[in-house]
Amino acid sequence: MSSSSSSSAHSSSLLGSSSHPLTPYGWDAGWEAEFAPYAAQGLVPGRVVRVDRGQCDTVTAEGVVRADTAFVTPHDPLRVVCTGDWAAVDPDGSPRYVRTYLPRRTAFVRSASSKRSEGQILAANVDHAIVAVSAAVDLDLARVERFLALAWESGAQPVVVLTKADLVADPVTVSHLVQDIESAAPGVPVLPVSSLHGEGLDVLAAVVGGGTAVLLGQSGAGKSTLANALLGEDTMEVQATRDVDGKGRHTTTTRNLLLLPGGGALIDTPGLRGVGLWDAGDGVGQVFAEIEALAAECRFHDCAHESEPGCAVRAALDAGELSERRLESYRKLLRENQRIVAKTDARLRAEIRKEWKRRGAQGRAAMEAKRGRLR
C-alpha cells in the first residue's frame, strides 16, 4: 500500500470512530460526510483555533499543528480562513498547508472598519453568539440591537450577558437593566453574571455548552474576565476595571478557540469599537420582529411609517405600545444595511434610485398642490 493510501485509510478509520479526538471541538457525522472526499485524498481534518498573518493553528487528531493558508487566500475577504473553520490539512510536510475548508454552517460577519465596501468575517461555525454588555456603564440599547442583528444574521442563537453585575450595588437596578435589554431583544436570553463571584455562570454554561460560542462586545465589556470564568482558568489576560467609569481595557488581540470544561468550545474576540452591519436585513427583521409584524398590517405595503393613513406602526407608537427610540433604531439599522447592500448589489442600487425618484416626484407634486391651494 502506498503512503498516500495508508494515510487515507488512517484518516477514514479516525473519521469513522465514535471517539474521534476532534469530537470535543464539534466534529460530528455531518462534518464527517462533508470531509469524506478530502479524506480520500489523504488530507486530515482540523479545526482552526487561531489565525495570524497567513498562518493558522489547527487542532487535528495528532494535536495542534501550524499550517500555511497560502492556498486559501482569495480576493474576497469573506472567504479567507477564519477561527472556527473546519480545514483540510496536509497530513505531513514542512510547511503543512490548509488546502481548503468545509462549507460554513454559520458565519459572523461585520462591515470592515475600512472605507471600502468589504465585509470582515469574525468567526465561523458558531452555535451561540454571546453579546457581553457591562452593567457598570450606561446602557446603550441601540448598540445591543446592532450586535443582535449581526448575531441573528450569522445563523447563531444570540445570548446577552449582563457582565459586572457585582459592580451594581442594588439588585433591583440589575433587574431593571435586564428588563430594559429584554425589551430590545425579543426571543433572546438575557443573563446577569458576576465573573468575579461566579454568579450566573452555571446558567450561561448550560445554555452554551455542547456547541461553539463566540464572545462579542465592546472594549472593556468584561469579555476576557468572562472567558476566564467559563474556561475555569486565567487563559485570557485581563486588566483591572477603572474605578472612575467602570470600564476595563480590552486585552484580547486575536480570535482564539478554546475548549470549555463542561463541553463545547468558546471563541473569544477582541473588543469591537465599531460594529457595522453587513447584509443583515434578516437579522434586523428578527431583532425588530414586533415592528415588522405591525408593518405588515399597514394599509400601504411601502409605508414609511411617517404620516401615511392606515399606518399600524404609527398607531402603536401613538398608543404607547411602541417606543420612539426603538422605531428610530429600526429605521437607522435598515438605512445602514440598505447602503451597505447597495454598494455591492447593482440591482438594489437601481431599485433604491427608483424609490428616491418616486418619493421626490411625490414631494414635488405635493408642493405644487399646496401652492395651487394658496393662490
Rank of each mutant, 00 (worst) to 15 (best):
S3E: 14
S5I: 09
S7F: 01
S8G: 05
L14Y: 09
L15K: 05
S17P: 07
S19Q: 14
G26R: 11
W27C: 09
E32H: 14
Y38S: 14
G42I: 07
P45V: 07
Q55W: 13
T58P: 00
G63L: 10
G63K: 12
A70P: 04
H75C: 00
L78A: 08
V81Q: 07
V81H: 05
D85L: 11
V98T: 04
T100H: 08
L102Y: 10
R105M: 06
A107C: 11
V109T: 12
S111Q: 14
A123F: 15
H128M: 07
S134E: 03
E145S: 13
L148R: 03
V159F: 10
V159L: 12
V159P: 05
V160Q: 06
L167G: 02
D180F: 05
A185D: 06
V190W: 06
V193M: 09
A205T: 15
N228I: 11
A229E: 07
A229L: 07
L231H: 08
E233N: 05
E237M: 01
G246F: 04
G264D: 09
D268E: 08
V275L: 15
G276W: 01
G276I: 02
L277N: 04
A280I: 04
I291H: 01
I291Y: 01
A293L: 06
E297M: 08
D302F: 10
D302H: 11
E306G: 05
D318W: 09
G320V: 12
E336N: 00
G360W: 09
A369D: 14
